[in-house]
């Protein structure tokens, strides 16, 4: 048994899992407040990373400026997508809504491949110190920042929904759209807000992942990986999304470990989450934290 490797992989799992958790949160936010399943979440993330990279490389902006500009761009992008593509489909059956986001995801994927190219690009160096020593362990700064950012995002999310007026409006809308509307909440604004927040936060996750590894179109696959995470956690639970993300992150690294040490099948890292997903769906169809759908005739 190779304990060091196992430990390293578990740490990796938690770090990646936190990022999955952030993306899962964005996904759940959209699902909860607008009842849209966003199959294009991965493309949001990738677009954010590309745009930020573009600002940094082409215009040579300092990192904070490029980062803020990207946030602004993504907020507008999210609102535009919501108004142009998803608003006309309000009230349509679920397959139409799933398909429109799938169509949008294929569209964005090839558009981004075209505009930004197929090859992986590394972010310019942002931190002066590459590696920090904590208690005898060498940790890359990017990883530390990734953990810090994920936790900050989660706290901000929590505070926003708990204490701000708009957060309350969004929770009310998620609970019951009609009642929320009759109490004077603008559903249109809430929907736009949900998409804007989701796009911005996914972009942050994309930038972090881009800095840790590199930006390439493979990042969009995280949008697919998020499905096991949200299913494990339950589709309509933001906390569940975070837990699901961490669980999936750790499990895929464990699968990698078991595979590398004993089984030698290869590719388990990619495929294990989907086996977990099917098993969870068979045992607990609404995930660990999700609310069962009770229907009346």
């Amino acid at each position: 048994m190779n304990w060091d490797l196992l430990f390293q992989l578990l740490i990796n799992g938690v770090i990646v899992g936190l990022l999955y958790g952030v993306v899962a949160m964005c996904f759940v936010l959209i699902y909860k407040s607008t009842q849209v399943v966003n199959f294009a979440q991965g493309e949001f993330l990738l677009l954010g990373a590309w745009v930020c990279l573009y600002f940094l490389v082409e215009y040579e902006f300092p990192f904070w400026l490029g980062f803020l500009l990207t946030m602004g761009f993504m907020a507008i992008f999210g609102i535009v997508v919501q108004t142009l593509i998803l608003r006309p489909l309000i009230g349509e059956p679920i397959i139409s809504i799933i398909m429109v986001t799938i169509g949008f995801s294929t569209f964005m994927q090839s558009l981004m491949n075209w505009v930004f190219g197929n090859s992986a690009v590394r972010f310019p160096q942002i931190f002066e110190v590459e590696v920090v020593n904590i208690g005898g362990l060498n940790v890359e700064t990017a990883y530390l920042m990734s953990i810090a950012m994920s936790i900050i995002i989660m706290i901000v999310f929590f505070a926003f929904f708990r204490y701000s007026r708009f957060g309350l409006a969004m929770r009310a809308t998620a609970y019951n759209q009609q009642i929320a509307q009759s109490l004077g909440i603008s559903i249109k604004q809430v929907f736009m807000m949900a998409w804007a927040i989701s796009a911005v936060v996914s972009a942050v996750a994309g930038i972090i992942i881009g800095m840790v590894s590199a930006v390439s179109n493979a990042l969009a696959f995280i949008g697919i990986k998020v499905f096991p995470a949200v299913i494990v956690g339950g589709l309509d639970s933001i906390v569940g999304g975070v837990f699901g993300g961490i669980i999936i992150g750790v499990l895929e690294n464990l699968a990698e470990f078991v595979d590398g040490q004993y089984l030698h099948w290869g590719n388990m890292y990619q495929i294990a989450p989907f086996y977990i997903l099917i098993i969870i769906l068979m045992i607990k169809p609404y995930g660990l934290f999700g609310t069962p759908d009770i229907e009346r005739v």
Partner: peptide, 19 residues
């Protein structure tokens, strides 16, 4: 890329205008 994009665009446009 335009070919790939056209499939995605066709899905979106059909769902909006001719569901």
């Amino acid at each position: 890329y335009v070919k790939e994009m056209s499939v995605g665009a066709a899905i979106i446009l059909f769902l909006i205008f001719e569901p």
